[in-house]
Design a protein around this nucleic acid. Sequence first.
DNA 1: GCTATTTGTTCAGTGGTTGAATTAAATGAC
DNA 2: GTCATTTAATTCAACCACTGAACAAATAGC
Lengths: 416, 416
Amino acid sequence: MWQCQGVKPPAAPAGAVRQGSLRELNLALVLGRIADARRPPSRAALAADTGLTRATVSAVVEDLVAGRLVTEADPTPRAGAGRPARGLMLAGNGPAGLGLEINVDYLAACVVDLAGQVRHHTVHRSDLRPVSPADALGRLAELAARARADADAQDLTLAGAALGVPGLVDGSGQVRLAPNLGWRDVPVPDLLAQHPPLTETVDGVPPLVVDNEANLAALGELHAGAAPGSFLHISGEVGIGAGIVLNGALFRGTRGWSGEIGHIPVRPDGPPCRCGGRGCLELYAGQEAILSAAGLAGADLPADRASTRLTQLAAAEHPAVLHALAEAGTAIGVTVASVVNLLDLDTVVLGGGYASLTGWLRPPVLAEIERRVLTAAWSPVTVRPATLGATAAAVGAAGSVVRRIIAQPGGWLARL
Amino acid sequence: MWQCQGVKPPAAPAGAVRQGSLRELNLALVLGRIADARRPPSRAALAADTGLTRATVSAVVEDLVAGRLVTEADPTPRAGAGRPARGLMLAGNGPAGLGLEINVDYLAACVVDLAGQVRHHTVHRSDLRPVSPADALGRLAELAARARADADAQDLTLAGAALGVPGLVDGSGQVRLAPNLGWRDVPVPDLLAQHPPLTETVDGVPPLVVDNEANLAALGELHAGAAPGSFLHISGEVGIGAGIVLNGALFRGTRGWSGEIGHIPVRPDGPPCRCGGRGCLELYAGQEAILSAAGLAGADLPADRASTRLTQLAAAEHPAVLHALAEAGTAIGVTVASVVNLLDLDTVVLGGGYASLTGWLRPPVLAEIERRVLTAAWSPVTVRPATLGATAAAVGAAGSVVRRIIAQPGGWLARL
DNA sequence: GCTATTTGTTCAGTGGTTGAATTAAATGAC
DNA sequence: GTCATTTAATTCAACCACTGAACAAATAGC
């Protein structure tokens, strides 16, 4: 049976620091440096970088190599005198992560290895709104099985999986509300229980983690792009969600429901929203709102085609579309200004359907930021498109699995 | 010379984990448990709590006692069989923190000991707007000297100081902008350089840290009140600031300028604000705005008297005041709804001048939250007044010094 | 007074890091 | 071609801090 869990506890580093913890912490430290380095570092470089002794680094690396997390690069053609360094890099054939995504009109599965390479990627397009949750998850399990077979064929060991859904997920992996999918209180763990298990738990984390797709997309951007330690990632899908990355970690909020940016009030006295509020951002910059303002309301485009169509029309300078995007950008800008005033972030990433529209959305967003952010003069804010494609959540989900192994290699190594 | 620093680097735990780090981490772990415990725990209880061995706990506690951070409580009159436990508590005569505050119409200094007790507190009232920064800091230095003498007399060792100012502080301790004080680019470190030094650095942190008053007030609330790990603290002074505490730590933002909640747009098309934006929160819930709406605009009250007067009038059910507070509460509620949608916080603390007005502000704030927060149904938000008084920033500043020693006792112990 | 019970300390043992010495492997000068 | 130089990586005794178990201390109950 699959075991599931939505939000892993923050896991404060303040547990008991036992004797073995020392090695565990240094494993994580060295592995992290190897992962973040631009080119394969030598043991000596790692020692100088971390402050550890060369002897300790050697011992730690030996463990990592034995655990198939790190491999030595080819004999390096380095210049200068002295014994040539043997570069260390993340292993391409060790553990890998399985990323899954359910969205309004597609299912996706992908496999990402330790080095962050996407080794498998499948997208299955179909409108899932009329499909029951159980059937939808059944189809997803088929994609997962195919991905797993492909991973096995490539000598990869799946170490866990993460599933992104466009809605609110509680601590037990249950989907409390996914408005655009029409789901409410769907027990994803139970529904997946009948399908074969993915793998055993690693380091106490269950094999499948369910999370909000905006969170996972932000995580994907964190370690795919050259994103800094703190940024806001806005996913413009049918709804609008956001993932908040602070100091290199996703901030999930008290109950895991952070980032509901779509229902931040832009005009408190504006038209009513189905959420019960008034003048929410989604009413001005959601997909329906933009299509409607552009005069494309009845076109009945699939959700993922809508942004493509808008991009084409905007590139052709379609007046109504340009106007609609300017309006949407202004609304996004007002919201982003609030966020930047509150959190002092220096980077905003436009993802999902917004990514390809960045050229038209950025000017009004920046204009609102400059007008409304007190510190804008000293602290310029960068607005840029997401580097991952449409299925960023799936890639981010898979990445979150391998990222956890890199951050806590102890669990994976103990499994051997 | 005083050395200053505005924002301490996040200090990611991911440094080199050397051999001695182990002891350092366990010192912090044990000391933290002693600080958080309701009643003085025994060594055995600490061992059971932390997972360390009794032997290790004994050794760690020996270091802490030798460093005057912990003392043994009186022979405990405990019930039940067995050797009676010797309770451990934070030392009252060890290191202490000096907290300073400059605000629009007062200066404050206080001394807080390890246990969080306020051992000295002085407030000097006078309008500082017409006073030059150099003179203001000179007066503050006098207060600090008096506080220091009092600390010496009580056998306390000042281990550092923090200064709260109502404005933006950069990484070097310079005040970039304090609009309500009329300061701009004031080099606080240089201006204090002529005054005698406070004490030597502890653990690499300079003896004086300059920070935003809203940040320090939030920190004070964090370890004074029964506040949970994550909350938003709103300081209603002449301006409106906020401190954001996430998972038990203050979140400062990329450049240390988080929490500028006063200029979050409430009505994007509203009246112009002097910040350059339109419809900022301060225009609806700032002190001037409330007084003006209440018909008290010309009363020319000192800033700290204004909230007292408003509270009296509200208690007397003065119609215009009640209306003004309802309007302000609604504006605050709209803003808080944005914050909760974004960060999923479950607690909002009303501080500064808002604290005594909580009774009238809370209903409209809660109403807006319930209307506009998507997850409000499953995730109730608590709105409560701050427990610290008007000079919360000074107390919070002093508390931040001792709190750092508790979190990182290694530096203090190494100093001996 | 004796036993049960819980607290706190002592001490040999061990895991993991340290620092210096040693070996390994390549460059470059003569 | 040989050898000094240089940098990389390993080996090894020493050491630091935690572990686990045995032991001493202090009290309640019988």
